[in-house]
Design a protein around this nucleic acid. Structure first.
Length: 693
DNA sequence: ATTAGGG
DNA sequence: CCCTAAT
């Protein structure tokens, strides 16, 4: 449990329970269980009334975690645990359902107060490993008589604001210490809990109550974070006023709280904590904004999508908890670019908060360049489990091999068709996040159809932008704030099967490395026959909710669009298009007619049919022409001085004209400024142009 | 959204 | 060609 935790802690992220951590903890727990007979009953602070349903969420989350983990570890223990948890979950659910049925919506508002304190040094964690097993057991003596956790001792009598902090208030039931028997009692989580005031033991209890398992971690901060995150992550949040306490937030007139505020943590407040606090506050906001609607519609169908897998197995559906994505976003925000992220977040999800859009979109129509493409979403391998708290990092990748079905339609004009698959539909947010939404064109797996990086020597930057552009910039940096990894796949002819007018490209990506499969986007670039225009339709399934984006670079009406091996050996840049003589002439004509600088005009009027030429291209080209023309010495005729260039030589006459124009315009401008500005100064220039070639 | 320039 | 700054 070392590094993963440490690092997480270290960077002050709010990445709470990562699966790794949890598992680690679980494992450790298992190891320690024998020794740690129990965390003696501890006062968990104050618990007010009614238990919450948070437990369910927790269980589910845990379950999910376990499930996912099991795949990898295949640990029997885990399995056992999983079973247990499942049972517990059902139980809890049942209870809750009954409760709900009774119409007793316990909207008990519990307040969890978490200070930002961060007294523990991260270094401590470094030693946890060693200490864990021996030290913990020795901690504190506790009333063994402490009631079991499962029994709620904090009866309703306690006011919500109350925070019985007394340590003599046996809360935890050491009795339930055995791993398998550990029974999470969420009732304890209700009411106000001032984590700051809790001792490690208490935190342990709380932890146990929250996660249904014990922990031996002694790091207070860690515990607090975990707990708070756990709670936050649960659907309970909506019902619970989660209050992150800093130094100001005071829930009640509670003495306890007061205590919390003063001494205890006020002092050492590592920098890293601020971040957490910030994040927490954000969460708070979120929760407050997304109020409790859970009780009203207990069975409300949850579209959050992030927990589908688990959800489907349960009768009662959770209403919705902060999405994994949400968590991720938050945890993502803190670092440096918090500003941007936040902005984006807010901007994107109109509400400034998580957008509840469903992540699963079996069928989707995407309009590309006026064309509508249908994308189909396949889920070939139900994989992907939600974990309580998702770490920023994509821990578990789709395991299932997936195949992509590409279907090319002869429709468009695009030469390159791209399909972008968003593996995790849940990462949507900050779209236009700075252009730096990194794109990793990482495709180095064996299959030939998977393009290697080297395939695109020009550099990722170009590729990235291309992709972005292809997608119209809106869709590409998906809604993903974090880095997006893109897997670029080029469908080679062999993989393309024609079917009437359409081509189907079946890609079997089973060979794609894990890494690749974890990408956020998969771009399929098809470049069949030269003139074949096509769009792409595709279906990719990974079990994860993924979104498919189809892209068809409908801008290019010609061949070499994507990566083009030049006849002469070189590999040309993706979007490079050799300028044809006619194009050049058009350019010249345009310049002569409208003047250099009016590129948008020229583009529109002269290059209307050349969609791939942008005004910038024109400008650049003109610049080049100019340069060439100037470099070109008078006597050189026939061809451009440059000889062995793959580039098409530009006829001297044209260069001449270019120079003329350049000179003329350069001269004309100053002199005829008035004229120019007033009307159409270009016309006269035009006269001169005509006649060459 | 366009331009102008640098890379 | 790409990217960015300035308009």
């Amino acid at each position: 449990m070392p590094l993963s935790n440490l690092q997480l802690e270290g960077d002050g992220r709010i990445v709470p329970a990562t699966d790794d951590e949890l598992i680690e903890s679980l494992l450790i727990d298992e190891k320690c269980e024998m020794h740690v007979v129990a965390d003696p009953g501890q006062t968990v602070g104050c618990i007010s009334n009614e238990e919450s349903s948070s437990g369910i969420a927790q269980l589910e989350s845990l379950e999910g975690l376990l499930q996912s983990r099991n795949k990898e570890a295949g640990s029997d223990k885990l399995n056992a645990r999983l079973e247990y948890i499942k049972k517990m979950l059902q139980k809890v659910k049942e209870e809750q359902r009954l409760r709900l049925a009774c119409g007793s919506p316990y909207c008990s508002s519990a307040y969890l107060i978490v200070d930002s304190q961060c007294c523990d040094q991260h270094d401590k964690l470094l030693h946890i490993d060693e200490k864990l097993q021996c030290v913990i057991p020795l901690q504190e003596t506790v009333p063994s008589l402490a009631p079991s956790l499962s029994e709620s001792h904090f009866n309703q009598s306690g006011s919500a604001g109350e925070c019985s902090h007394s340590s003599d208030n046996p809360v935890a039931g050491g009795s339930t210490s055995s791993a398998v028997t550990t029974k999470p009692d969420f009732s304890k989580l209700k009411g106000e809990i001032c984590l700051d005031n809790l001792s490690i033991k208490e935190l342990h209890e709380t932890f146990k109550a929250t996660f249904g398992r014990e922990t031996t971690v002694k790091d207070k901060q860690w515990l607090k974070r975990r707990i708070s995150m756990g709670l936050t992550n649960s659907c309970d949040v909506s019902v619970t006023s989660f209050i992150i306490k800093d130094n100001k937030l005071v829930k009640k007139e509670n003495e306890e709280i007061s205590n919390c505020m003063d001494g205890s943590y006020a002092e050492d407040q590592p920098i890293g904590n601020q971040k957490d606090l910030l994040t927490s506050l954000n969460q708070l906001d979120y929760h407050q904004v997304v109020p409790e609607k859970r009780l009203e519609n207990p069975s409300l169908d949850d579209n959050s999508g992030s927990d589908d897998h688990q959800t489907e197995q349960r009768a009662a559906k959770r209403v919705r908890k902060p999405t994994k994505r949400y968590i991720e976003e938050l945890s993502e925000v803190e670092p440096k670019e918090s500003n941007g992220r936040l902005m984006n977040l807010a901007k994107n999800s109109g509400h400034g908060l998580i957008s509840l859009k469903s992540h699963v979109r079996p069928v989707r129509n995407v309009i590309l360049g006026g064309r509508t493409v249908v994308t189909r979403l396949d889920s070939l391998g139900g994989y992907g489990i939600q974990v309580p708290c998702v770490s920023r990092v994509r821990r578990s990748r789709p395991r299932k091999n997936f195949m992509a079905l590409l279907k090319f339609n002869p429709s468009g004009m695009g030469t390159e068709a791209m399909l972008v698959k968003k593996v995790h539909g849940d990462h949507s947010f900050p779209p236009d996040d700075e252009k730096e939404s990194r794109v990793f064109l990482k495709a180095n797996s064996t299959p030939e159809h998977v393009v290697h990086q080297k395939f695109n020597p020009s550099g990722t930057g170009t590729e990235a932008t291309s992709i972005k552009k292809a997608f119209g910039d809106h869709s590409f940096p998906p809604d993903d704030g974090k880095e997006s990894r893109v897997l670029k796949v080029i469908s080679t002819p062999e993989h393309v099967h024609h079917q009437g007018d359409a081509c189907h490209c079946l890609l079997d990506l089973k060979e794609v490395s894990e890494y690749e499969r974890g990408v956020d986007l998969v771009v399929f670039i098809g470049m069949p026959e030269k003139d074949k225009q096509f769009s792409v339709m595709s279906a990719i399934g990974l079990g994860h909710n993924m979104e498919l984006k189809c892209m068809n670079s409908s801008g290019d009406s010609d061949d070499n669009v994507v990566t083009v091996p030049t006849p002469k050996g070189g590999i040309r840049r993706k979007h490079h298009r050799a300028w044809t003589l006619t194009e050049v002439m058009k350019l010249v004509e345009g310049v002569s007619s409208y003047g250099a600088g009016r590129w948008s005009e020229i583009k529109r009027l002269e290059f209307a049919s050349y969609s791939y030429r942008t005004s910038v291209d024109l400008k650049d080209k003109w610049r080049n022409l100019l340069k060439a023309s100037l470099a070109q010495t008078p006597q050189d005729n026939g061809m451009n001085s440059r000889k062995n260039t793959g580039a098409m030589p530009i006829p001297a006459p044209i260069l001449l004209k270019v120079r003329e124009l350049a000179e003329m315009q350069a001269q004309v401008l100053p002199n005829l400024s008035s004229t120019k500005i007033a009307g159409s100064p270009r016309k006269n220039v035009h006269e001169k142009q005509t006649g060459f070639l």
